[in-house]
């Protein structure tokens, strides 16, 4: 790829421009549509230049879909999931890479296998557990015959119940397990030289101290990359929030509200408001990606050999 003939340059520029257009065109259409009035957007063909009604449309969308509280909900859930995923991924990878115990590889493969079981596949059992997070223990007690034993002895009927539906816990917890994150962290931890581990042993630090003082700071760039991906994907979650919240008023997320923005069957076809809503909803992930990208570059430049 060192060749730099004019033809080669032209081809690579053309490829970049095509790629850029493919990515950017839908955004442009959303932006243009969001800035037009009802009559402008109803015109065929639609104009591809922005008009002056962006703020009205945004205001209308904001009120119609109650976006203020919903944005807050989304933010809480996305941050919670991201934080949980990173914590769990870092800790599980730490255990797998730096400790020598017999079940190590079994644990790793079990985590790895869950890559093949996305939420959509296990949504029914996950829902039933979310409805009562203690039901596995109840089942265990029942099958072991302990429920009967306890009720016979004490007269107390054991019935464990912890309902996660309509709560932030219920929205967040089932999403925090992440094989991808564990795998990414594992790959990074394996590049940490043994000597560094041994040096910290000689310096007297225990495993957790090593984790917080050395591994976490060293993996900052990786963590940021992972956090970005995780934030965007949990922001975009649709199916699970839809299922686990019946109290949409208080626990709905913005992505669920997209539906509320779509014009009703026989209502006014105000797609400009819908697009303005979409614009608001996709803004936070965009901002995060833009910010994180700056960090990536910074992290790469000041990287130690």
């Amino acid at each position: 790829m060192i060749e730099r003939s004019p033809l080669f340059n032209a081809i690579s520029y053309a490829m970049m421009v095509i790629g850029f257009l493919i990515v950017v065109t839908p955004f442009w259409v959303v932006l243009v549509a969001a800035s037009q009035s009802l009559s402008e957007i109803a015109r065929v063909p639609m104009s591809l230049w922005p008009s002056a009604h962006l703020w009205e449309n945004i205001e209308a969308a904001w009120n119609r879909a109650d976006l203020g509280p919903k944005l807050l909900n989304s933010l809480i859930v996305a941050l919670g999931v991201t934080f949980g995923k990173i914590t769990i991924a870092a800790l599980s990878a730490f255990s797998i890479v730096f400790f020598n115990y017999r079940a190590r590889m079994v644990c790793f493969w079990m985590i790895f296998v869950t890559l093949m079981l996305p939420l959509e596949v296990r949504i029914v059992p996950t829902y039933s557990i979310a409805a009562n997070a203690l039901s596995p223990f109840q089942t265990l007690l029942d099958t072991l015959g302990l429920t009967g034993l306890i009720s016979a002895l004490t007269g107390v009927e054991v019935s464990l119940n912890w309902n996660l539906l309509n709560s932030y816990t219920g929205l967040i917890l089932p999403l925090v397990a992440t094989a991808t994150g564990t795998f990414l962290y594992r790959q990074f931890f394996m590049t940490v030289p043994d000597e560094l581990v041994e040096a910290s042993k000689m310096d007297g630090s225990g495993p957790m101290r090593f984790f917080f003082d050395v591994l976490i700071p060293l993996s900052r760039t990786n963590m940021l990359a992972l956090a970005t991906i995780m934030f965007v994907s949990s922001w975009n979650q649709y199916l699970w929030p839809l299922l686990v919240t019946t109290d949409r008023e208080n626990y709905g997320t913005v992505v669920m509200q997209l539906k509320a923005l779509i014009p009703a069957q026989n209502g006014t076809p105000d797609w400009n408001v819908t697009m303005a809503g979409a614009l608001i909803i996709m803004l936070p992930p965009l901002v995060i990606v833009a910010l994180a990208q700056r960090w990536f570059v910074r992290g790469l430049i000041s990287r130690d050999k």
């Binding site: 000597e195 560094l196 040096a199 003082d213 050395v214 700071p217 060293l218 130690d304």
Partner: peptide
């Protein structure tokens, strides 16, 4: 003292 220094890079 280690062969590859083993200093904490951060």
């Amino acid at each position: 003292v280690f062969q590859n220094y083993a200093l904490y890079p951060h």
